[in-house]
Design a protein around this nucleic acid. Structure first.
Lengths: 111, 111
DNA sequence: TGCGTCTGCTACAATATTTGTAGCAATATT
DNA sequence: AATATTGCTACAAATATTGTAGCAGACGCA
């Protein structure tokens, strides 16, 4: 699976509209979870394997490569961490956390 | 593939933390694209097939079912449209659109 | 130096998801 | 009544993900 790059064809857009490239990137398994889990601290490959329960090393490594290619994360001596871009995206995603809690109530109510 | 419901185990969380259930839902192919494309107007199944270039009817229908089950969209006489929840999520996602344009520059510069 | 231990990561087969094409039944439109 | 359009299903081929095993390099330590 090739890294979605804006301006090139991606899943969802032959012209590679930036938002579609971003959705292609973030919409792959574990991409959102990885970014979310790198929010608080940098983590090693093995730590990411632990916090992302059930991700396979194959997929984890594939996703890490893609996120590096798209400048969302970078590898350091202390493990992987978000780049400036990655932090910006995470900041935009953060509100989803509390929204998800409210959303969750919809399911408890109907139980 | 079962619809991710907060509070139940999902890809990424055995306890089904709401944010993880949401990421599981949104991180499936076309989920983000569908929500994005329902932002401006309601669309029929065939219209969604057109605007989501290259989605298969199988996947489209699966995703639509999941998004209905999770109260993000609903089916009307005029096609599918976002629910109140869906609109809220889209509003949270919208800033990603303009951010993606800035992000896109990173790739043009290095060409 | 030699021995565990931990690390990032690859191999590879089994399983799951997505695509692509065809087409069907029900509902408009002519 | 004939034709077109719609929402959607069938199903096989292609692709992505998992799960398990394991390897080579770096590290701590005797």
């Amino acid at each position: 699976m090739s890294t979605p790059i804006p301006g090139r064809p991606v899943r969802g857009s032959k012209s590679g509209q930036p938002i579609m490239a971003l959705f292609d990137l973030l919409g792959r398994s574990w991409a959102l979870g990885i970014i979310w889990n790198l929010g608080t601290r940098s983590r090693t490959f093995r730590q990411l394997q632990t916090v992302c329960e059930s991700v396979s090393p194959t997929t984890l490594n594939t996703r890490l490569k893609e996120l590096r290619n798209s400048h969302m994360i970078e590898s350091t001596i202390n493990g992987y961490r978000l780049t400036k871009s990655g932090i910006e995206v995470l900041d935009l995603l953060k509100p989803l956390g509390s929204w998800a809690n409210k959303w969750s109530d919809k399911f408890n109510q109907s139980k």
